Structures are given as C-alpha cells and as structure tokens.
Computed example of a mutant assay.
Amino acid sequence: MAILAFPRVAHRYLDVDGIRVFYRESIPAQAGPDAPVLLLLHGFPSASHQFRRLIDAIGNSYRVIAPDYPGFGHSDAPLPTSAGGTFGYCFDRLADTMEGFVKGLGLDCFVAYLFDFGAPVGFRLATRHPEWFAGLIVQNGNAYEEGLSDGARDFIALRPDQPDAEQKIRDLLTLSGTRFQYETGVGQLELLAPDGWTLDQHFLDQPGRKQPQVDLAFDYHSNVARYGEWQAWLRQHQPPTLVVWGKDDPFFPEPGAHAFLRDVPEAELHLFQTGHFALEEKLPEIVPLIADFVDRAWSGS
C-alpha cells in the first residue's frame, strides 16, 4: 500500500517591530529550496491553525507559510490603544505587520491565499507591493459590495458611539457565535471537526483578546471604502486568480465570488455547497485546484 509523504512543519516566531509573530512553515522535502511559496492569510476569528490540514496536504511540494496576525493565535497581543496601549488594531496596522513579516523572511514572490480578513490584509499588501504576487487564491475573501450579505452590512455599519454596538460585536465573540460561523451553510456537519471553533474560542477567551477584535470590527468599514482601489489593482495587474467559494456563506454570499470575474475575466471560479470555512468540509475537492493553480502561476511568474 502506498503511503503518502507528509511534510515536516516548523513552528516559529519572527520579531516584527517588537511583536512576536507566530507562523507555521512547511519544509518541502520533494521540491527542495526552490519550491513555490504559498502565503496563507487567515480569517476571523481564527489563526494559522485553520490551515493545518491544507499544509499537510500540499506542504511537501510547496513552501507554505501561515502567520498569525497580532492579537490572533499564538502571536503577541499588544495592549490596544483603545485600552490605553500603543498598538492600534486596524486593518492598516495588520497589513503593516504582515508587510514587515514578509520582508523579515526575505520573501520576494509568492502566491497568496486570501480568506476572510486575509483579503483586506492581502489586498493592502498587493497595492503596496504588486511585484510580490505571483498569483491570488481567494476563498470567501470579499472585495465587492455585492459580496456583502444584509447581516454583514448591518455589522459593518456599527460605530462606537451607537447604543449597544460594542455588545453586538462581543456577542459574536462567544462560543455560540464562533460555532455559528463554522456550521452555517455546511452540508455534512459530521465532516466539520469541532477543533476549529474550539481553538478559536480558546484564543478569544484569553485575557485582553476581545478588545482587539472589537476595534477591528469597528474598522471594517475602512475595507469597504477601499474596494474600488483593490478592484482597480486587479484590473491593472490581471494577476493569475483562483476563486474558490463556499456559496452558502452567511457573510459573503455567492455574488462576491462572481464579481472577481468582472475585473479579472480569466480568473478561475469554483463554487462549493458549503459555508464560510470552505476548507473544513471541502478540502479534498479544493486541494487539487490549489495545487494545479500554484504550479501554473509559479511557472509563469
């Protein structure tokens, strides 16, 4: 019986402007030091652990790097400015840290996987450094107005001076709120490992971890304001693009996936009957698409 080769995965920290950024990195024995590089940018309220199965599946052929943002997972969570600290939790600042992370590792070319929060972080990096991007894989990472559900629009409209606005955000940071994000839209719940939402909630419940999420939620409108800029970047640069999308996502519905074809007509689009965390249920179907795409994007870079 043939045994599949699994990668070794290193778990490391990199200092970025005084912040210890945790990351996972596969060591691709098959491909060696010249292996294509795939940068995985995670979503809310998760961290790099959401990519563990994906890294095992492809990490022996590619150098796969998955960092945790500040305030997420195993990375430092500096005290936010809203609580008297010095770190402002906004999407520009997350992108600043990830920019420093990429430079710190000496990466100058990669295929980026943008999921959820990974889209606003990744598109900020793309507009700053288009030369870094050999291709884009977008998985339920929105960049279009039509990709926002009514519930998402209501959430994004929350402002700190509105009554009960912060409490509405904090209600999403509970175990029931986290589990809802994983389970909604999933066809076969038995394929959904409970470890994902359990780990997410573990980190959310650590001291000082909820206020950064509140601050980021109040800043999410800054992403919508930049959709036009990101769409213009896509039109100008026409990066090789693969869109894989859980079509029953309660936050980012199917029209947001189709919208990418408007600006990148040659993009590949694959829809799956699942929810927001599409890899949880549809990993076997999505992995071959990723591998084929990375091979072609890297050979053309």
Rank of each mutant, 00 (worst) to 15 (best):
107 L>M: 14
137 I>H: 02
97 T>W: 05
116 D>A: 08
146 E>L: 04
133 F>N: 02
118 G>F: 01
136 L>A: 07
113 Y>E: 04
87 F>E: 13
113 Y>L: 06
128 R>S: 06
111 V>C: 11
98 M>T: 08
101 F>G: 00
106 G>N: 10
97 T>C: 11
116 D>V: 02
86 T>S: 10
127 T>A: 08
99 E>G: 13
113 Y>T: 01
82 S>K: 11
89 Y>N: 02
137 I>W: 02
133 F>T: 08
127 T>N: 10
143 A>F: 01
90 C>H: 15
122 G>F: 04
85 G>P: 03
134 A>H: 07
96 D>T: 10
125 L>P: 00
145 E>R: 14
143 A>G: 15
86 T>W: 05
146 E>C: 12
142 N>K: 03
130 P>A: 09
86 T>M: 06
113 Y>P: 00
85 G>S: 12
109 C>F: 06
107 L>C: 07
112 A>N: 00
144 Y>R: 01
82 S>G: 13
137 I>M: 13
113 Y>I: 01
133 F>V: 15
146 E>R: 14
145 E>A: 10
116 D>G: 08
134 A>E: 03
79 L>Y: 11
89 Y>A: 02
144 Y>L: 01
80 P>G: 08
142 N>P: 01
85 G>H: 11
109 C>G: 10
91 F>Y: 15
115 F>E: 00
99 E>L: 05
107 L>H: 11
140 N>Y: 07
131 E>Y: 12
116 D>H: 14
112 A>Q: 02
83 A>G: 11
108 D>H: 14
123 F>H: 13
81 T>D: 15
94 L>N: 07
114 L>P: 00
113 Y>F: 12
135 G>T: 02
81 T>Q: 15
113 Y>K: 07
96 D>L: 11
114 L>C: 09
129 H>Q: 10
125 L>Q: 10
105 L>H: 15
123 F>V: 14
106 G>P: 00
85 G>A: 13
87 F>D: 12
106 G>C: 04
105 L>W: 12
92 D>F: 11
123 F>M: 15
116 D>P: 01
128 R>K: 13
91 F>I: 00
108 D>K: 11
87 F>S: 12
120 P>T: 06
141 G>Y: 05
141 G>D: 03
93 R>K: 13
122 G>I: 07
127 T>H: 08
103 K>W: 13
102 V>A: 01
103 K>A: 13
146 E>V: 08
91 F>C: 02
140 N>W: 09
122 G>L: 06
83 A>M: 06
145 E>Q: 15
126 A>L: 05
118 G>C: 04
109 C>R: 15
106 G>R: 10
142 N>R: 04
133 F>K: 02
88 G>P: 03
87 F>V: 03
130 P>R: 13
103 K>V: 03
145 E>W: 09
